[in-house]
């Protein structure tokens, strides 16, 4: 069992490594993708400078705390898109019958599929997350927690995308549903939860778990709370498990499109 897990992790690591090497062939494009993504994210700081010139407090967040929220959002986004890019294109893979190439491999089908490619610009997102974190203020405990929350948040984003994209096993237009789900997760993640009230706030901590992936980590980083940490880890594990269950349940309905393809 342990050897199987070790082997799977090794294959996943190699898959990501080769994807990275492939992308690095064109150095100019590779670097411009990363640098421009950092610039792209930095532009949004202007928005918050303007907003904080109107009011000192944004839903209970100070300017530095909003920056930290941006760091967590960029970090979770970066982790999910860099390591599991194909989880966000799973619907297309299922609909076009491209799963065949992964099914024939003696490895975990879901992991092999979603780690088969990387999004280079996501490196820019991860770097931006660290830059913003260091502006917020370095401390070894919060630094470890920050990295940990980027990983759990990234896993949650990926799991939600897998769950929604796996609906393609049952419905034709599931990609549209997953687009909406992904944009809900990304758009809400960069605004403080204090500006939302009532049912919206409730939804953000339940059905659309932006609160668990992004807001709870901020609260823990500001003031450590073990209960909130347990909630974050539990929801992350639950969503990951659910993603595997739904994907493999749907996989039973998958039928090949007889498409000839090879992974080189």
């Amino acid at each position: 069992m342990l050897t199987a897990v070790k082997n799977q992790l090794k294959v996943t690591g190699l898959s990501i490594k080769y994807a990275l090497v492939r992308e690095f062939l064109n150095k100019a494009t590779f670097l411009s993708n990363i640098i421009f993504m950092i610039l792209n994210n930095s532009c949004m700081i202007i928005q918050w400078i303007v907003l904080f010139s109107i009011k000192d407090d944004m839903g209970g967040y100070t300017f530095k705390q909003v920056l930290l929220l941006w760091g967590i959002s960029a970090g979770t986004y970066g982790v999910s898109r860099f390591f599991f890019k194909k989880a966000f294109e799973l619907s297309e893979t299922i609909n076009s019958g491209k799963l065949d190439a992964y099914i024939v491999q003696p490895k975990n089908i879901l992991l092999s599929t979603i780690t088969s490619d990387i999004q280079v610009s996501a490196i820019g997102d991860m770097l931006f997350a660290f830059i913003v974190y260091f502006i917020y203020g370095f401390n070894i405990t919060t630094f470890i927690l920050f990295i940990f929350f980027c990983v759990t948040g990234g896993l949650m984003l990926t799991a939600i995308s897998i769950i929604l994209n796996s609906l393609s096993f049952w419905f034709n237009n599931a990609d549209m549903v997953s687009d909406v789900g992904n944009s809900l997760m990304v758009n809400f993640a960069t605004y403080p939860d204090g500006i939302f009230k009532g049912i919206t706030k409730w939804l953000l901590f339940t059905l659309v778990p932006v609160g668990i992936a992004n807001y709870i980590p901020i609260k823990i980083l500001i003031e450590f709370n073990p209960y909130l940490l347990i909630i974050n880890i539990s929801v992350c594990l639950l969503l990951t498990l659910l993603a595997f269950v739904i994907f493999y349940k749907g996989l039973r309905r998958y039928s090949s499109s007889n498409l000839m393809s090879a992974r080189i």
Partner: peptide
């Protein structure tokens, strides 16, 4: 001139969005 013009678009779109 540069293979992928996408990054230029990201920055342009963010400038329009924010400003």
């Amino acid at each position: 001139f540069i293979e992928d013009s996408g990054p230029f678009y990201w920055v342009y779109s963010k400038i329009i969005l924010v400003l």
